[in-house]
Simulated assay, not measured.
Amino acid sequence: MPEMKTRWDIFCTVVDNFGDIGVTWRLARQLVAEHSVAVRLWVDDLRAFERLCPDIDINATQQWQQGVEVRQWSVDWQPTEAADVVIAAFACQLPSAYMEAMAEREKPPLWMNLDYLSAEDWVVGCHGLPSVKYKNVQKFFFFPGFRKGTGGLLRESGLLERRRQFQQSPQAQREFLQGLGIDRAPNAQLISLFAYENTGLASWLDTMAADSTPTHLLVPEGRILGDVERWLGLHGLKAGAVHVRDALTVQVLPFVRQDQYDLLLWSCDFNAVRGEDSFVRAQWAGRPLLWHIYRQDEDIHLDKLDAFLTLYTQGLSEPAREAISGLWRAWNAGETMTDHWKSTRKHWPELEKHAETWCLEQALQADLAAALVQFYLNWI
């Protein structure tokens, strides 16, 4: 794509700790690095941002991080010139003064609502359509997605090649894991666990502890830690803690920055993830995964879950499809995991092969950043 001398503003309201800022921070960096656009990222919670990017100064109203201008989005909004492209992430409401600034531009900006990721059928029909209008400024729907006719998924240039090289290098994996204080047992399956609170966890841990195959479970600091503590009968687990119960080793990891989290996912045999950003990164890892979807009112999140499972499990044998679908549904309902995990383990080779196939199929689509740039080029 041609290099563009355009200015982009991305607005992010941090709703669920890390998912919103995870997506927008990744997108902002990629737009700067691969498309040479100037990006201002407006964030209303720099403390959450700091967990993903420890270099952030949480008190600075303006700073530069990895080529991105990061601005603190506070209630005390200062007059600001509107950019050429304005992205409201996940339907966040822009400051009224900024909307006026958009309307005052001689050439109105391209205004897009970057929506949540969904595999539901209706997304294809709505992607790219005009939404509301503010004075002379038209807003458009922009949907990430898994099908042709959507905006695709965030994927940096060369990501899968870097992943392939890492996964083919036992030394690189060993050095990375040792850097986090992880001493992987030779025959243990390595599993990462990043999830919301879940009443089904205890049964899953019981099942892994009783398994004939040893499991090393890596738990980055986060909301699921309280359930891990209850299962261990402990309190105040911190990063670095290691506890062994029969065939299961549980190790608590520090919350890692985004690039390190990729390496963690690539190192593991199975990844349990949550939200949106981690969900996409686990798919690029090419390994079997378990998604804890963000709960929504009236259980509409379960429709999203089923839509993705319908798409993801295409090509699997019926027993393997039932196994992985059952596991995901039980996990998201907080139900007993024992039978579902045993069934999943039975179909492991097929599920491993399928995860890689799915990853490569998704990589055939344009990535989200490139799709956004192309949408802008078409618009002008």
Rank of each mutant, 00 (worst) to 15 (best):
T313N: 13
A209D: 08
L41D: 10
H347F: 10
F141W: 00
H235V: 13
A247Q: 14
G326H: 00
S203I: 05
L327H: 06
L160T: 05
L234C: 08
E322G: 14
D20F: 03
Q167P: 07
V228N: 01
K238V: 14
S325K: 02
S317P: 02
A88P: 11
I87Q: 12
G315R: 05
R274C: 02
F11D: 11
F146L: 07
V85W: 09
L52S: 11
D259T: 15
L372H: 09
G179W: 08
W284A: 05
K342G: 13
Q296D: 01
P349F: 00
Q283A: 14
R7I: 12
L372V: 08
F141N: 03
G275I: 00
L205H: 01
I300H: 11
R155E: 09
L114A: 11
L327G: 06
A89W: 05
M337C: 03
L201R: 14
D44Y: 00
L225M: 09
P349I: 00
L154N: 03
V123T: 04
A172D: 08
I182W: 02
H235F: 02
P144T: 04
A48F: 00
I324A: 04
P144W: 05
I191D: 11
L201F: 02
T213S: 11
C268S: 12
E322V: 09
P220F: 02
L46F: 09
L94E: 10
R51G: 01
Q260G: 13
L302K: 15
W111I: 05
H292G: 05
N113Q: 13
C12D: 10
I324V: 15
L253K: 10
G240K: 12
S74W: 02
R223G: 07
L290E: 01
L309R: 00
K139Y: 05
W291A: 10
S343F: 03
A320D: 08
Q283L: 15
K342I: 07
S317G: 11
A28Q: 06
K107Y: 06
L180F: 03
F308W: 15
V273Y: 12
Q178G: 11
A28L: 00
F270S: 09
F194A: 15
L94K: 10
K353P: 00
D306W: 01
L129G: 04
Q63C: 07
L225R: 12
G125P: 04
V124E: 13
L372I: 15
